[in-house]
């Protein structure tokens, strides 16, 4: 970091801290009547969560650091993610568009954040083939994020001129009006590939079934368990839960992002180990280990 960047960090941190402290001081000076004011700065009942998060963060950051040093990292094939490229390829062959549906939640859902990251990677692939990428959006705040992600994808592919802003379409905040309009796009613009990646609810079935009826190749993914069965049934490939979050690393193949996948796997191994140890202890009547996972 150069001096300019350091001073910028200090400046913004100072603004933030000043603002926070001012509000806190004002609050302490005149606590709301009738409520008990808590002056503690750490909730010791949540120490177990703190330690668990610290372990998971360390595992992820450690592998990211390893990846940055150039260590080779093996990641197995994930069929659903390979299918995204296959779907784009098919759309190219047919000279038709790709429809990317980023779920119905706002940016205050981490699945939408993950979906926007995938969108950037998908845009990069699509930009090379010169086919339209249509992104219908339910939440207005997602529109600028999608625009940035797609523009960046086209820019990375060296095709900024091919970026079409009008294909990032805000539809309506109403869940079923959105579904009705997207169904319309599927039937009238006939995209060759539908990618449904993000947070979905009841509209998942309407979208996936309409898409299937048009004969488009469909790749779906969500972490919302109740919608996964519909995707499994109506789509060609489905990314289940964690696979959705793994997509950005897998598609970009960037070492530091692949490192985070490895870190995540290490954390998963520790969880499996904790379940095994805990189960053995519970079976012989030892309870304290299980209590480590109680959250307040």
């Amino acid at each position: 970091m150069n001096n300019r960047k350091i001073s910028l960090v200090i400046l913004i941190s100072a603004i933030w801290l000043t603002l926070c402290s001012q509000i806190l001081l004002a609050q302490e000076a005149a606590p709301p009547t009738g409520t008990k004011f808590d002056y503690h700065w750490f909730d010791t009942n949540r120490l177990n969560v703190f330690i668990t998060l610290a372990i998971v963060f360390s595992a992820i950051l450690w592998f990211i650091a390893r990846a940055k040093k150039g260590k080779s990292l093996f990641i197995r094939r994930i069929a659903g993610l390979d299918a995204i490229e296959e779907a784009v390829g098919r759309a190219t062959e047919m000279g038709k568009s790709v429809l990317y549906i980023p779920g119905i939640h706002d940016m205050n859902d981490i699945q939408t954040v993950a979906s926007m990251i995938i969108l950037g990677n998908v845009a990069k692939t699509i930009a090379r083939y010169d086919i339209p990428l249509i992104v219908p959006i339910r939440q207005p705040f997602v529109v600028p994020v999608a625009e940035e992600a797609v523009r960046q994808g086209y820019l990375s592919a060296g095709r900024p001129d091919a970026f079409m802003k009008d294909n990032i379409r805000f539809i309506s905040d109403e869940q079923f009006a959105y579904a009705a309009a997207v169904n319309g796009i599927m039937l009238r613009e006939r995209p060759a590939a539908n990618l449904l990646l993000g947070s979905f609810y009841a509209e998942s079935l309407l979208l996936a079934e309409t898409g299937a009826s048009t004969g488009a190749i469909q790749v779906a993914g969500t972490a919302n368990i109740h919608q996964l069965p519909f995707f499994v049934v109506a789509c060609d490939y489905t990314l289940i839960g964690e696979e959705l979050f793994a997509a950005s690393a897998y598609l970009s193949r960037e070492p530091k992002l692949l490192g985070s996948l490895k870190g995540s796997d290490l954390a998963k191994a520790l969880i499996v180990l904790a379940i095994i140890i805990g189960t053995i202890l519970e079976t012989i009547g030892v309870k304290w280990f299980t209590k480590l996972f109680v959250v307040q």
Binding site: V49, T52, N108, I275, G278, F293
Partner: peptide, 28 residues
């Protein structure tokens, strides 16, 4: 908004999807 979401959801997922499920899976 994205940063705040990442922080808040990270905690939410760690609790309800992570630790609570691990605890419920540890059975005799």
């Amino acid at each position: 908004v994205v940063g705040g979401t990442a922080g808040a959801y990270l905690i939410g997922y760690a609790l309800s999807n992570g630790m609570k499920q691990v605890k419920s899976t540890i059975l005799p």
